[in-house]
């Protein structure tokens, strides 16, 4: 019997393939920032290539009557376009390329994570936080560019008496600042939890099979793992959708701060 422990979080390890060097710091051990090409970077690159290849190749024919692949690409386009239009209005369509890129990146990265031995880019909070902060900065910068100081109306709900307002404004500001955090937490939490649970049930199957006569019971966690795999595919698509919808909702605030 092998004593190799089953580590459900081993799959999230970052592996450095090669390094670009150490930047900053004072030369002592551990100071500065090492910039390396990791497995996470590799899968981000693969995600980018796969998403681009899918869209470019499927629309190359430009058939008026779309083929199967083109129909899929057009459906994704229409899906995101509907989402932007219903959440951020027609004016929000100027952000369509942004939202579409985010959606495709997260969707493909999540689906890549479902392939055995592949790394799940979105299971690291630094990645989802970077995406969420990007959205946050776009909202803040565009909001101020478009509305000027009127953007601050977002923090002052109408119809509040003056003796309450000094309490409400800080609350609104904290609520606004918490958006990138909750935005990134949801994607990250769902992906991380799902993959750990899958690994745990998979590990149970292996452990039970190694336990002689008890191996018969392994059918139970195996069935669970199969069911969870199906669920995880759904979660992968759903979380990409949720991330994109929230992006649209936040962009709507930048476009119409007064509600």
């Amino acid at each position: 019997m092998s004593e190799k422990a089953i580590e459900p979080i081993h799959q999230f390890n970052i592996v450095k393939y090669f390094t670009f060097g150490n930047f900053g710091g004072n030369g002592s051990e551990g100071s500065g920032m090492e910039i390396a090409f990791t497995n996470s970077a590799l899968f981000m690159l693969l995600t980018l290539l796969a998403a681009s290849a899918f869209l470019i190749l499927s629309t190359r024919g430009r058939g008026l009557v779309p083929g199967r692949m083109q129909l899929m690409a057009e459906m994704v386009y229409e899906f995101v376009a509907n989402m932007v239009r219903s959440s951020a209005g027609t004016e929000g369509m100027r952000f369509f390329p942004f939202v579409f890129t985010l959606f495709m990146f997260i969707l493909v990265a999540n689906f890549f994570g479902m392939v055995p031995y592949f790394f799940t880019v979105t299971s690291h909070i630094i990645v989802t936080a970077a995406l969420a902060v990007l959205v946050f900065l776009v909202v803040v910068i565009y909001g101020f560019m478009r509305n000027g100081a009127k953007f601050l109306k977002l923090f002052v709900p109408p119809g509040i008496p003056w003796f309450i307002i000094w309490l409400v404004v800080p609350i609104e500001i904290i609520s606004f600042l918490s958006r990138p955090l909750s935005h990134s937490l949801r994607l990250w939490g769902n992906m991380l939890a799902g993959h750990i649970v899958l690994k745990v049930f998979g590990g149970m199957v292996v452990a039970l099979l190694g336990a002689g006569a008890w191996g018969v019971v392994a059918i139970l966690p195996f069935g669970m793992a199969v069911a969870l795999t199906g669920l995880e595919f759904l979660v992968a698509a759903l979380q990409a959708f949720v991330f994109a919808v929230l992006t649209c909702v936040y962009l709507n605030d930048a476009i119409h701060p007064g509600h």
Partner: peptide, 9 residues
């Protein structure tokens, strides 16, 4: 997520 995020911030 919404509740915890605001408290942390």
């Amino acid at each position: 997520a919404e509740f915890v995020a605001a408290i942390i911030v």
